[in-house]
Design a protein around this nucleic acid. Structure first.
Lengths: 265, 265
DNA sequence: ACCGTTTGTCCGAAATATCGGACGTCGGTC
DNA sequence: GACCGACGTCCGATATTTCGGACAAACGGT
């Protein structure tokens, strides 16, 4: 998964950037930030330079500029850098500027707090599933903040709702075939997936268990636009051994929240 | 220090950048993002160009690049741009990477939810006060998400805690004199401010009423490092007519949260 | 329908930011 | 103590990005 990300990146370097060894500072910076986001950890400048194909001297120059602007921060005292506070400010401005997300924050925070389990708000980004908001809940372990990380649609409960409006043929065209293979190598049959979707549409929620992870159950409910199309989902991530009774309660909670978030009502 | 930062920046504009009309793309991008953050609203490209002193053609070029990278988003269909989802991802990575902030998120979310009032987590940035986290609470009005906006220290309750470790003379040197003037023109006497600080230290919290805004009360408690220095505050923003009883309860809540956040205890 | 303003694109020229490589330092290893 | 690799800085040359201005299209008020 991570390996693919890196390989991809280097492939990019070799196709889109090969023509010239020279690139604009801004393009270098974009590559730098994407690299940090993929790695999700403070990283040494020389490593970033190597992995993004940027000359070392250029990277030092850019990092200095960005640190000054608070886009990046030097960490630990060893020579690693990571995102700085400016990113948080700009990110907050973004969240506040998108109506649905602003409302979703309230809902996600509320249900995570009252139920005590990790709650998320998710959408599609291209043909991938994406966690937009994540509120950890009360359990200490598993702080799976995957914000901004893309995941194949079939790997998720929410994914079964988000492609709700497509028929079998459209699904086949839309979701890359390899995305039906789970991280452990198992493959999800397409009819199984379609059947999940059908059931989801009638029931108004989805439950998946042990999909990407053997011990986790996901519960998701659809946020729909006035035309009925699923534009986002709100969901819980809970241990698989959660009682049926508790899960039913969470499903009701999710449905209520999702309903409140659905625009034009 | 940060005030200098701002002054410095503008001095730069007039000294370091004037000589030549030409600037690096990355510097123009930094100016662009700062401008959007200051305006806090989708803005037309031509306006950004004018207000940041960037040539129009350059700004169009850069905006296109940034939109492609999802750093910016075209809004509404009119030609305005604002921050895009990438900023949210990077900002989330930053929040997750800073231990104290990660813990503070949990506390702020929890107390905002249980008490139902707006809760915030604040620090100093140079010689200014800064809201790092803001959780709106249950009231509908006043969604004062001032994340990333700097405010004079004397205008805030938290400010009285954050300069806790300075003596009268140091305070005078540290806080710009003009920062003692409130937005409505009233001036805070320095001894009054010092007296507030003294009381705050003995009581373990601060309360201010009608400081920047006639109808608002702020309650704040200090997060201290092992040496006892106040490194951040956690606070409530409530209507001034909140009952004394309710306020006492909130103060206890704040003190408990602040205690949990204080490192090495 | 007219005209002034704003928007977005395109182009050539030249000022300069990027790049490669050299250099001094620092730490660890044999 | 000599060697090796990594780190961070500096410098000159040139490939390139920025910039100004021109242009067409869209807009909006009269």
């Amino acid at each position: 998964m991570m390996g693919d990300g890196v390989a991809e990146k280097q492939a990019e370097k070799q196709s889109a950037e090969k023509p010239t060894g020279r690139a604009r500072g801004i393009d270098r910076v974009i590559a730098l930030m994407e690299h940090l986001h993929d790695r999700r950890a403070p990283t040494r400048i020389a490593d970033i330079a190597r992995d993004t194909g940027t000359p070392r001297s250029t990277m030092y120059e850019l990092v200095n500029t960005l640190v000054e602007a608070r886009w990046l921060e030097l960490r630990d005292g060893d020579g690693t850098v990571y995102f700085g506070p400016a990113m948080h400010y700009y990110g907050s401005d973004y969240l506040d500027s998108v109506d649905l997300i602003r409302k979703a924050r309230v809902e996600v925070a509320h249900i995570a707090e009252t139920v005590g389990e990790t709650a998320q708000f998710c959408t599609l980004d291209g043909d991938k599933y994406l966690v937009v908001l994540n509120e950890p809940g009360r359990r200490m372990f598993r702080i799976s903040s995957e914000i901004g990380i893309k995941v194949p649609i079939p790997w998720t409960a929410s994914g079964r709702l988000l492609v709700d409006h497509l028929d079998a043929e459209e699904i086949r065209r839309f979701i890359p075939s390899e995305d039906f293979t789970l991280p452990d190598g198992r493959r999800i049959a397409e009819d199984e997936f379609l059947e999940d979707m059908r059931r989801a549409r009638t029931q108004g929620y989805v439950r998946t268990t042990a999909l990407v992870d053997r011990f986790t159950t996901c519960l998701a409910a659809p946020v729909r636009d006035p035309s009925g199309r699923c534009i986002a989902t709100i969901c819980f991530v809970v241990p698989a051994d959660t009682t049926e009774e508790a899960q039913q309660m969470m499903i009701d909670t999710l449905k209520a929240s999702a309903e409140r978030l659905s625009p034009g009502r």
